[in-house]
Nucleic acid binder design. Structure first.
Lengths: 210, 210
DNA sequence: AGCGATTATGGAAGTGACTACCATATGACG
DNA sequence: CGTCATATGGTAGTCACTTCCATAATCGCT
């Protein structure tokens, strides 16, 4: 690795950090990209080479946490899918718990600014889509695992990825809302017990006469 | 209802329709709001009184379908939650199936334009949040339904809403991707069978040693 | 019908995110 | 040291979106 990439990563982090400072101080709407660029001592056009939109500056940390866990998952093909997904959930929550203030601020900014919440939702969706893709390849690979009666593999994969995403979202949301002190991974465990135990009201397959 | 509200609804629809035309013709990025306003024969400032962003013009139909079903759900407090949620799923899919081209175009535009997919994700999220709120009040009301051992009501509600949203999303996605002809409600039924039958690899509650 | 109050509309002016482009500088490599 | 690839900064421009005000359409009441 050359000196070039080191500098690149440094600049990248510097920009995101300065941006986050300004956002927490003056708020998202009252901060211009010029101000961020000036604070990071780069030109605005340089800033846009690192981050495509102002919103992505807010989401840097969350995005990183999610995709790190996904990368880990891809490198663990020997694990069973349930164990692998469990590892994904744990890794994401570990990242979040390592920096509670940042996560909290992200959610606050998302709550105040529609475009931020939109981009947050988008990042999580893209993550889920990549997880779906990975699950699809794995399910097709060892389809001996389960007969998968009738249902197509991508369909099953999408459902699994969606539920995993849900568990993470619900857990993080609850963890952020609570006055700190709660254990995120304990919450996630509860969520999964509920899922397996059937304690959740699901839509029924049989249509009722309406 | 006065003449005023009739006109308002007419203008609202007119704007969305003209916008959709232009988007399908020239694409989202190559259409300016001025062009849309001109096509609908209103001033740009009027357009912004009806739609807060250009992206929401794309999502008008999807948004309407989702929230109509939610309104219906709110008006059916006598139904059990599973039946009610089933009704929600059915109603959303009915709406989508009533206008396949429009849904397909929305997904195409979302696939091409990041900001559209971001707003699409956001709309669906807001919908899920409102569904969560409704489920929370209902679960607290008749908590005699189930003991809900230990788990908090909003937690359970959020999971239920999330899964319902997942079923809809996965179903619509699969239905849109397929070369037409597939029955969306049949797909949804499969999804729910998979969910109930445990045919989906979920993260395990017990952490494995990593 | 007529009249005051309320609300919808159109236009003008401005802010700021984002893009395209080019000249320059800086690290990579023989 | 020379060259080459890449990173940077600045400029100019487009366009989404906001704010504000003057005007016009509708409503409610008598």
């Amino acid at each position: 690795m050359g000196l070039r990439e080191v500098k690149r990563e440094r600049t990248r982090q510097l920009i995101a950090d300065k941006a986050f400072e300004l956002f927490t101080d003056r708020g998202f709407g009252r901060t211009t990209v010029e101000q961020i660029a000036a604070a990071a001592e780069v030109g605005p056009s340089t800033l846009y080479r690192y981050y495509p939109t102002k919103e992505r500056l807010v989401l840097e940390f969350v995005e990183g946490s999610l995709f790190e866990a996904l990368d880990w998952f891809r490198e663990q093909p020997q694990l069973s899918l349930p164990d692998g997904l469990q590892g994904v959930v744990e890794r994401v929550l570990d990242q979040m718990e390592s920096n509670p203030d940042r996560v909290r601020t992200v959610y606050e900014l998302a709550g105040q600014t529609p475009s931020v919440s939109a981009h947050l939702a988008d990042v999580i969706w893209r993550w889920r889509d990549e997880l779906t893709a990975e699950l699809t390849t794995r399910l097709t690979a060892d389809s001996s695992d389960q007969p998968l009666a009738g249902a197509s593999v991508p369909f099953t994969a999408a459902l699994a990825a969606g539920i995993t995403m849900n568990v993470i979202e619900v857990t993080v949301q609850t963890w952020v809302d609570n006055p700190a002190g709660t254990d995120a991974k304990e919450l996630a465990r509860e969520a999964m017990c509920l899922l397996r135990g059937g304690g959740i009201p699901l839509p029924t397959a049989d249509p009722t006469q309406l």
